[in-house]
């Protein structure tokens, strides 16, 4: 099961709201909100397909300006 660490940039003042909104998404785990408002989250799904769908979905969440990928591990999926 692949797992990735992402940083989510939010519009000013939206971080708390965005954080609670995305915490309810299955497969997205918020790990912290940084002082500058960026959110650190871990995304996991059964497949990379699933991860990408989750991240592409985040782009549609109001208040989210960008999602960037810091780390991606997919060691247990056969390519």
């Amino acid at each position: 099961m692949p797992v990735s660490g992402v940083i989510i940039t939010c519009a000013e003042g939206c971080s708390a709201e965005v954080s609670s909104r995305i915490s309810s998404i299955n497969g997205v785990e918020v790990h912290g909100i940084l002082p500058d408002g960026q959110i650190v989250a871990v995304v996991e799904a059964d497949t990379v397909d699933g991860e990408v769908e989750l991240v592409a979905g985040l782009y549609e969440v109001e208040g989210i300006q960008a999602v960037r990928l810091a780390y991606h591990n997919f060691e247990d999926i056969a390519h």
């Binding site: 990735s4 660490g5 500058d36 650190v40 871990v42 810091a70 780390y71």
Partner: peptide, 10 residues
């Protein structure tokens, strides 16, 4: 590790 890398990058 995933979270740590993201924190570090931020």
């Amino acid at each position: 590790s995933a979270a740590a890398a993201a924190f570090a990058a931020a």
